[in-house]
C-alpha cells in the first residue's frame, strides 16, 4: 500500500500561500505515522521565484505541472493538471488547505477517485493506519471526531489556522519532477481575469477597531456602535453579515473574504467568532469581546469578555470612553 502524502501547494501566481509551511509540517507528521513521505504538488505557470520557494519546503519531492495556460487559476484546467500528479503518485492521502480553491479542486478529484473526502478539518491523525480527523459542526459549537471509511486516496482540507507548527528548515532539497500539462478536450470555463476589490479606505491601517456583527440586531442600532468608536477615536469594521445586508460597505469587512487586520485594540461587538472572521483579526494585540451568549466562540480568542446586551451596554462604554482622556483620539477616521 502506498503511504505517500500529497500536499497541494496553493499560491497566487507569485508566492505560496502563507500556511503552506504548516501544511507541509502536518503532512510530514502524518506521512511519518504512515511510514511514507510527502510530495508537494505545484500547478500553474511556475516561475523561478515560486519554484525556489517550493524547493525550500521540507518535502521529499516536488511534482510540477507548469504551463503558460495555467497562469491564472481556473478549476477546469487546474483539476486535470493536479490529477496527472495524483495518477502518478497514487498517494494514501491528499491534503489541501481549506480554501476557495480547494472547495473546487478537492471534491472534483475525490468524486473522480470515488474517494472519501472530509473538509474544514482542524486535525488529522493516523490511528492503526486508519485516518481520523477532528472538524467543527454547527457553527463551531461542537467538534466531531470522524473516521474515513473505504479505500484510499483520502482527501482532506485543513482549516487555515489549525494548530500546526511551521515546518523546520529542510536539510535536503526535494527532488523536482516535472509533468507535462495535458489540457482537457473541452473547456467550459473561461477566466476573464482576477482583480482586487476597489476600496476607498483601508481598515487594516487602523490602530483601534470597533467591529460590529449581526448581534447589533437592527440597522438603526449601528449609531450606538459609531458613537462608541468615535469616543475612542477608533475605526468601525464589521463581520460579513453586516456587509451582506448592505449596512456597512464591504471594505469594512474583516475575515477571509474581507480584510486581515492587526490593530492594537479590536473590540468585537455581537460577533460570534466563526473561523472565517477570526482568521482576519486573531493577531490583534488586545481583543475585547462583547456578546450576549456566554458560549460565544469569540471568547476563545478574546483577552477580555463581557456577557452583555450591546444595546444597553455600549452606551455605558461610550460614556466611560468620553470621560477618560484618550491620547489617540482624533488621529483616526471616525465614522463608518
Amino acid at each position: 500500500m502506498s503511504s505517500k502524502v500529497l500536499l497541494y501547494l496553493e499560491h497566487d501566481g507569485r508566492k505560496l500561500q502563507g500556511e503552506m509551511t504548516r501544511l507541509v509540517s502536518k503532512g510530514n507528521e502524518v506521512a511519518e505515522a504512515l511510514g511514507g513521505f510527502t510530495i508537494g504538488a505545484l500547478v500553474g505557470d511556475i516561475g523561478e521565484e515560486l519554484l525556489a520557494e517550493a524547493r525550500r519546503l521540507k518535502c521529499k519531492e516536488i511534482a510540477i505541472v507548469s504551463d503558460p495556460s495555467l497562469r491564472e487559476y481556473q478549476p477546469e484546467l487546474f483539476r486535470p493538471a493536479l490529477e496527472s500528479i495524483l495518477d502518478e503518485a497514487s498517494p494514501h492521502l491528499v491534503l489541501f488547505r481549506h480554501s476557495y480553491v480547494s472547495a473546487e479542486l478537492a471534491p472534483a478529484l475525490a468524486y473522480r477517485c470515488k474517494a472519501p473526502i472530509v473538509s474544514n478539518c482542524l486535525e488529522v491523525e493516523v490511528k492503526d493506519s486508519r485516518i481520523e480527523v477532528i472538524r467543527p459542526y454547527l457553527r463551531e459549537l461542537c467538534w466531531g471526531r470522524v473516521s474515513l471509511q473505504g479505500e484510499p486516496p483520502y482527501f482532506i482540507t485543513l482549516q487555515r489556522f489549525a494548530a500546526h507548527k511551521d515546518a523546520a528548515a529542510n536539510d535536503e532539497p526535494p527532488r523536482v519532477k516535472e509533468f507535462r500539462f495535458r489540457p482537457p478536450s473541452k473547456v467550459r470555463i473561461r477566466s476573464e481575469g482576477i482583480t482586487r476589490r476597489a476600496e476607498s479606505e483601508d481598515i487594516s491601517k487602523a490602530e483601534k477597531i470597533v467591529a460590529v456583527g449581526r448581534g447589533i440586531g437592527e440597522r438603526t442600532n449601528l449609531k450606538i456602535v459609531e458613537e462608541f468608536a468615535e469616543a475612542l477615536g477608533a475605526t468601525v469594521a464589521c463581520s460579513r453579515p453586516i456587509a451582506d445586508l448592505g449596512w456597512l460597505p464591504v471594505e469594512r469587512q474583516v475575515g477571509i473574504s474581507g480584510k486581515t487586520v492587526c490593530p492594537k485594540v479590536y473590540i468585537a461587538c455581537g460577533i460570534s467568532g466563526e473561523s472565517q472572521h477570526v482568521a482576519g483579526m486573531k493577531d490583534s494585540s488586545l481583543i475585547i469581546a462583547i456578546n450576549s451568549d456566554p458560549r460565544a466562540r469569540i471568547f476563545r480568542v478574546a483577552h477580555y469578555g463581557v456577557v452583555a446586551d450591546l444595546v444597553s451596554f455600549l452606551p455605558v462604554l461610550t460614556a466611560a470612553a468620553r470621560r477618560a482622556p484618550q491620547p489617540g483620539k482624533g488621529t483616526e477616521s471616525k465614522k463608518g
Partner: peptide, 27 residues
Amino acid sequence: KERIEEIMAPMVPQSAAMLQGSPQEVA
C-alpha cells in the same frame, strides 16, 4: 465514506477573562 465517531465540546479553552461587576465598573 465517513463515520462520526464522537461529538464533543470544542477543545479550545476559553481565553478571555470574563469581566464581572456593574456595567459602569466593567466599562
